[in-house]
Simulated scan of single mutants.
Amino acid sequence: MAKLQVAIDLLTTEDAIALATKVAPYIDIIELGTPLIKSEGLSVITAMKEAFPDKKVFADFKTADAGALEAEMAFKAGADYITILGAVDDATIAGAVAKAKEYNRAVVVDTIGVADRVKRAQEVSKLGVEFVELHAGLDEQAKDGYSIQVLIDEATNAGVPVSIAGGVNINSIADVKKSGAVVAVAGGAIYGAEDPAAAAKALKEALA
């Protein structure tokens, strides 16, 4: 069964933990968004892992260089996953993967901004990453004509473990599941909902 990941794009540790507390029964992975980590620093990773030791904590660093160094920073703080940008040199990804092996943690490659996400997913999967995030960022999603169906089709064709991030909601979750993605990443569909717990519960049930 695909795992459900909540992307927390709030800006304070207090708000992030409050949201995670509401949705924890229904999610598998807690993603600390890039703006949150930039706002609060490494301490938010430690705080989240201490609050939810049974959940995987996903540090969305979007690392572009010094892969081994930034991976170690994230893992020492308590992260289970770190993201490395797919557009970077393979050496950056390989360095992070090597560090992940030392800490028994994992690397996820984020394909935001990559023109051919399927091709890059297939390439970086050979470097030992846990899975590849087929990701349309908020700015891409805001463009006229954007559809998550693009990511769903890419996941179906990738042939490697992928997650889908970019508009996952209750209307698209069935197709996300059908695509074979190993993780469904929901952000606004959960934290923007009137009842985040109910929204997370509905998504989790749809993945079952």
Rank of each mutant, 00 (worst) to 15 (best):
I45D: 00
T46E: 10
T46I: 00
A47F: 01
A47E: 03
A47S: 05
A47N: 02
A47R: 01
M48Y: 01
M48E: 02
M48R: 02
M48K: 02
K49G: 06
K49Q: 10
K49S: 09
E50D: 13
E50Y: 02
E50I: 00
E50M: 09
E50Q: 14
A51Y: 04
A51C: 09
A51L: 07
F52E: 03
F52H: 02
F52W: 05
P53V: 05
D54S: 14
D54Q: 14
D54Y: 09
K55G: 08
K55M: 08
K56M: 13
K56V: 09
V57D: 00
V57L: 05
F58G: 01
F58T: 01
A59Q: 08
A59C: 13
A59P: 06
A59V: 09
F61P: 03
F61S: 04
F61L: 15
K62L: 02
K62S: 02
T63E: 00
T63A: 07
T63W: 01
A64Q: 11
D65E: 15
A66T: 09
G67R: 03
G67Y: 02
G67T: 03
L69T: 14
E70K: 10
E70P: 00
A71G: 13
A71N: 01
A71M: 03
E72R: 13
M73V: 00
M73S: 12
M73L: 14
M73G: 11
F75Q: 06
F75D: 07
F75V: 09
K76G: 10
K76C: 13
A77R: 02
A77T: 03
A77L: 07
G78A: 08
G78M: 06
A79S: 09
A79C: 10
A79T: 07
A79K: 09
A79I: 07
D80H: 14
Y81S: 09
Y81Q: 07
Y81F: 15
Y81L: 12
I82P: 03
I82M: 13
I82K: 08
T83F: 10
T83V: 10
I84F: 10
L85K: 11
L85P: 01
L85W: 07
A87M: 15
A87Q: 13
A87F: 15
A87G: 13
V88P: 10
V88W: 11
V88A: 12
V88K: 11
V88F: 13
V88N: 11
D89K: 15
D89H: 14
D89F: 10
D89P: 02
D90I: 11
D90H: 15
T92E: 14
T92F: 10
T92H: 11
I93F: 01
I93T: 05
I93E: 00
I93K: 05
A94N: 08
A94F: 00
A94C: 05
G95S: 07
G95W: 03
G95H: 04
G95Y: 05
G95V: 02
G95N: 03
A96I: 04
A96S: 08
A96E: 04
